[in-house]
Amino acid sequence: MLTSGNILLAGSLLSPEPGLIFWTTITFVLVLIILKKIAWGPIISALEEREKGIQSSIDRAHGAKEESEAILRQNRELLAKADAEADRVIREGREYAEKIRAEITEKAHQESQKMIEAAKNEIEQEKRRALAELRNEVADLAVRGAEKIIRGALDADVQKKVVDSMIQDLSTNRN
């Protein structure tokens, strides 16, 4: 049976025990001092060291990440620049080729034009010369024919005049 008076009022639970206080103090202080020396010191310093190590690893990792990102960015920029450069070179090459082609075509055109011109001139000259030659020839032939005719029948001079005027007419008509 629970004797409540014993528990609450007899002062047994709350009775002061100076001896126990004395021993608790001594025991606890000794334990505190010894544990501080043998355990808490090394454990806490190891934990702090590890914390610092982890922090520095994280910092290093962040640094490396930033560095690699910077390098990546740089590489991208370089690549973009190289692309642009290549584009530019191709475009310039194309333009240059175009220009050269145009130039060559132009030149060829001019050349051909010139050659045609020259050929025309030559043809003209040749024609003229041929005409002159032909004229002379025709004149000679006519003269010779007239000579023959005249020799045969008529006075050669009269005949020649007639023929000459006729040829003159011919040539003026033609031109």
Binding site: E17, P18, G19, L20, F22, W23, T24, T27, F28, L30, V31, I34, L35, I38, A39, G41, P42, I43, A46
Partner: peptide, 29 residues
């Protein structure tokens, strides 16, 4: 009166366990 009582013995047992345990742990660290 500083006679050894039951609770004092328990305190000492606790202290002994703590000291032994943490001397190992401290040595490990």
């Amino acid at each position: 009166d500083i006679s050894i009582t039951k609770h004092v013995v328990m305190l000492w047992i606790v202290s002994a366990i703590l000291l032994v345990l943490f001397s190992f742990v401290g040595a490990a660290y």
